[in-house]
Simulated assay, not measured.
Amino acid sequence: MRAADRKFDPSPEALSAIEVEWPLIEAELSLLDAEITLIHAADHGGPSPLDWRRLRRAEARVTRLAADLAARPAAFREVA
């Protein structure tokens, strides 16, 4: 790999931050998937009670993980 190519690679600090935030990122992706399911269901008779439950659970998970991440000391968020 050339040195010029390496300047675009993420730094170890950036990779560490992504690793710390990954549970929240994953939860946000699940929420997005639940929202897309609701939109798609609108064209096919409407969302089912299970679709709505999935959305509520995904929202709650995002909220919980965001609060947990925000409650961590800044030094831990950057290093962990």
Rank of each mutant, 00 (worst) to 15 (best):
M1A: 12
R2S: 10
A3F: 11
A3V: 07
A4D: 15
A4M: 13
A4L: 15
D5Y: 11
D5I: 09
R6W: 08
K7E: 15
F8D: 07
S11Y: 09
S11M: 06
S11Q: 03
E13K: 10
E13S: 13
A14V: 11
L15P: 01
S16T: 12
S16A: 15
I18D: 03
E19Y: 05
V20N: 04
V20W: 08
W22G: 03
W22E: 09
P23W: 00
P23S: 01
L24I: 03
L24C: 06
E26N: 06
E26K: 07
A27P: 03
A27L: 08
E28K: 12
E28D: 01
E28A: 05
E28G: 05
S30M: 02
S30I: 05
S30D: 00
L32M: 07
D33V: 04
D33R: 11
D33T: 07
D33K: 13
A34G: 03
E35M: 04
E35T: 08
T37K: 05
T37C: 04
T37F: 05
L38N: 00
I39K: 07
A41P: 06
A41C: 04
A42K: 12
A42F: 14
A42D: 15
D43C: 11
H44K: 13
H44P: 03
G46Q: 02
G46P: 04
P47D: 04
P49D: 08
P49R: 04
P49I: 05
D51M: 02
W52G: 09
R53N: 04
R54C: 01
R54K: 10
L55E: 01
R56H: 07
R56M: 08
R56I: 06
R57L: 11
R57S: 03
E59A: 00
E59D: 06
A60M: 09
A60Q: 10
V62G: 02
V62N: 04
T63E: 14
R64W: 09
R64K: 13
L65C: 06
L65N: 01
A66I: 01
A67L: 14
A67M: 11
D68H: 08
D68L: 12
D68P: 00
L69P: 08
L69Y: 12
L69E: 07
A71G: 14
R72Q: 12
P73C: 11
A74G: 07
A74R: 10
A74V: 13
F76H: 14
F76T: 14
F76I: 14
R77D: 06
A80H: 10
